[in-house]
Amino acid sequence: MDPFVVLVLCLSCLLLLSIWRQSSGRGKLPPGPTPLPVIGNILQIDIKDVSKSLTNLSKIYGPVFTLYFGLERMVVLHGYEVVKEALIDLGEEFSGRGHFPLAERANRGFGIVFSNGKRWKEIRRFSLMTLRNFGMGKRSIEDRVQEEARCLVEELRKTKASPCDPTFILGCAPCNVICSIIFQKRFDYKDQQFLNLMEKLNENIRIVSTPWIQICNNFPTIIDYFPGTHNKLLKNLAFMESDILEKVKEHQESMDINNPRDFIDCFLIKMEKEKQNQQSEFTIENLVITAADLLGAGTETTSTTLRYALLLLLKHPEVTAKVQEEIERVIGRNRSPCMQDRGHMPYTDAVVHEVQRYIDLIPTSLPHAVTCDVKFRNYLIPKGTTILTSLTSVLHDNKEFPNPEMFDPRHFLDEGGNFKKSNYFMPFSAGKRICVGEGLARMELFLFLTFILQNFNLKSLIDPKDLDTTPVVNGFASVPPFYQLCFIPV
């Protein structure tokens, strides 16, 4: 058959498939802009700032609406009420993970971030239990974070109060905490193996944040037939998995079943207990991918939040002064901060919360999916439909947070200066898919920041009023603009 005829037939089939998918069930789905064949609503979305586009569309179609990214149908949730109703009140029905062709290629359905069903539930339950087990290797997770915080302070001392970009050092600290939990080992910041790991993690975040990856996920045929950065992403992930597998083999040879040292040991012990169960989800494949998931999810998000926190503290020296006064009063100079201190430091706690609220790190979270046909607000959402959640619409709700575009710790303080919780605080998402490392991340943010401010004054290279804190939105995360500062020993 003539190649031209084959091409026309293929394009015609794709067009018909697109029209059929977009028209099927439209009477039951939430409203939304009319999609174009094949490309859907992509032309109506700013790929570099999806969150802003969703906010604009919500003003037209309401808090629940339908979009098509290519052939992929998505239902968008915008605003606290619908997000709570879906992710919390109907948590089980909305607990699936959205379709990610690239991740599915890399992870093969294993791990904790992109798995679904029984596998996801069992691996998540085990990971939560293990991360909360403060007795691994007779050292609590808090001990590990405190140790890394001391190392971080010593690295900052080496800058000798000269101007520096904190990106690298602030990236090393949370990565080392995860390494300590998974591998029972922290690395020197100049260790070549550690630097290679950091390089792969950072490069992957840069790649994932590009519009090209959005295109690959919406048109998965590209993955096999086109060159691009997605190939580098898959190569980096394969490198990390190979490295983790080597460490798993080392653990198998040296493990003491009665004295687990780290996450890998705990997983291997669980595998041993379930070795007679042919349906067990505790396999080497799941261990390797879960460890890679924890490394990827637990490094860049925390380091970016820390980097943004220091920029905001530079911009608002009056806030920094209040935090340091609270540190001096509650902790002093002669001991290290600990998590028990947080309950006695409402202002510092409010500042950490406000940093996370203000920066809105992951504006749309990772997409969910419905696990069955769901009736939601008089609409029928078919099983498997991807759910896109606007966390921006919750964290920047102007009824809950007056002047949401302003950095103001009073958003989390009552009139008496006591810490005030808010149900709208969802930087880790909400419901059954809430970030498994939430507790660890909150511990790291509090301890790293208090250790830094206990030991250093922060000095800006320019007038604080002239510092730009506008986030650089890159399609996946909101990151701070480049800046330098000086760490002046107190």
Rank of each mutant, 00 (worst) to 15 (best):
D2W: 15
L11D: 04
S12K: 04
C13V: 11
R21D: 06
R21Q: 11
Q22R: 13
G25C: 09
P30A: 03
P37W: 05
P37K: 02
I45T: 04
D46H: 11
D49G: 08
L54P: 01
L54S: 03
I60Y: 07
I60H: 13
T66G: 02
V76G: 03
H78L: 08
G79T: 05
E81G: 10
V82M: 07
K84H: 12
E85G: 07
A86W: 05
L87H: 03
G91N: 11
E93P: 11
G96L: 08
R105A: 08
N107P: 04
R108P: 04
G109F: 04
G111H: 04
G111A: 02
F114V: 09
N116W: 04
K118C: 10
K118Q: 12
M136I: 15
E154D: 12
L156K: 01
S162C: 14
S162H: 13
D165C: 06
P166W: 04
V177D: 03
V177G: 01
K190S: 15
D191Q: 07
F194V: 07
L201R: 04
P211K: 10
I213D: 05
N217M: 12
F219T: 05
Y225V: 12
Y225N: 10
G228H: 07
H230M: 06
K232D: 08
L233R: 04
F239Q: 13
D243F: 15
K247R: 14
Q252F: 10
S254I: 07
S254V: 08
M255P: 04
D256P: 06
N258Y: 13
D262P: 01
D262W: 01
D262T: 02
F263D: 01
I264Y: 01
I269P: 00
K270H: 11
K273P: 05
T283N: 11
I284Y: 09
N286V: 04
A292V: 15
D293R: 04
D293Q: 06
T299L: 01
T299W: 10
R307A: 09
Y308L: 05
L310T: 05
H316N: 13
T320Q: 13
Q324F: 06
Q324E: 09
I327N: 00
V330Y: 07
R333W: 13
M339P: 11
Q340E: 15
Q340V: 11
D349T: 09
A350H: 01
V355Y: 01
Q356S: 09
I359E: 01
T364E: 06
S365Q: 02
S365R: 03
L366Q: 03
T371H: 07
I381A: 00
T385Y: 02
I387P: 00
L388E: 00
L388P: 00
S390G: 02
T392M: 03
T392Y: 06
S393A: 06
N398R: 13
P404G: 07
P404K: 00
M406L: 13
R410P: 03
H411D: 01
E415H: 09
N418Y: 11
N418K: 14
S429Y: 02
K432E: 13
K432G: 10
M443V: 09
P464D: 13
V473A: 14
N474R: 13
F482T: 15
F482Y: 04
F487A: 05
